[in-house]
Design a protein around this nucleic acid. Sequence first.
DNA 1: AGCGAATTATTTGTCTATCTAAGCATCATG
DNA 2: CATGATGCTTAGATAGACAAATAATTCGCT
Lengths: 161, 161
Amino acid sequence: MDRTDISLIALRRILRATELYGKELATAAKLTAAQFRALQIVAETGRATPKDIASRMGVSQATITALVDKLVARRLVTRERSERDRRQTNVTVTPEGQATVDEAPDALQQRYVRKFEALEDWEQAQIIASLERVAAMLDADAIDASPVLTTGDIKSTDKRH
Amino acid sequence: MDRTDISLIALRRILRATELYGKELATAAKLTAAQFRALQIVAETGRATPKDIASRMGVSQATITALVDKLVARRLVTRERSERDRRQTNVTVTPEGQATVDEAPDALQQRYVRKFEALEDWEQAQIIASLERVAAMLDADAIDASPVLTTGDIKSTDKRH
DNA sequence: AGCGAATTATTTGTCTATCTAAGCATCATG
DNA sequence: CATGATGCTTAGATAGACAAATAATTCGCT
């Protein structure tokens, strides 16, 4: 088996682990994976418009409407018309919603974070270089990928507004 | 922003690119992503039982029944009772099904393969080491990750049977 | 040999996610 | 102010997923 295959297999393991993690996380939070992702996006900065959420998740706005409906019903977010532009809706995380995200189980990501931080400097640097290299090889271009898998203290690289 | 965050962002880009690739692939093949994945699994060794497919995809058998129904309707696979164990069903890829997999569009993976192979030896080695490192940090353990994103010439690391 | 338990697949019913198309309100601009 | 663009929602459709129930078969044990 050549190196290309080996790298694909490792990649595949990463994808699979992440997917399973998503389900695990969602199950523990009593939400579906999609709902949890949406909630995370909102919680990241405290609020977001459906449009933002849709583009971050790569789905249509209609999907977000339904998703937000469910989150509102669970009182994890609220929905209000924006003052600045009354076509827009602000989806705002509630304390409960924030708590749900914060109390997400100590699974994959935290495991990853802990292990990553335990690495030697040079090793961290190498991994970053490699991951960025792979990401560059994979994505055609300009994909929005701010850290949804937030570690809790990242501020979104604010984009227009 | 610290290194952990940077690495998470890169990881996120990889995940996203791969997800989008899945959709792209499926659209081109006129199948949904799930259907395509199932077909790939069957095509990998020519046949598979619903049980195998379910565990490889991480979903229930009931889901596979419905998925295989659709693939059968499109004549991409056939279904017959196994001789060895008549509780089992063999899902076998048809020439059309195989062709569908083989003719999957020249998108992400091939882009990746080409670029990866163009790298210097030391760079390939570094990427592999990093990816495996990350995979190990992410997956709890023993996750089946044989190359579904097959490059066309990988034989499954045969497992019991 | 025969009975009960386990395994494999399917059916049925329900829920969620997702899309497209269409609609409504609002903003921006000529 | 009329027109078109933008942001969101609604409506209707399809797909994926699960749990529970069912059926067919095989296995384990006495």
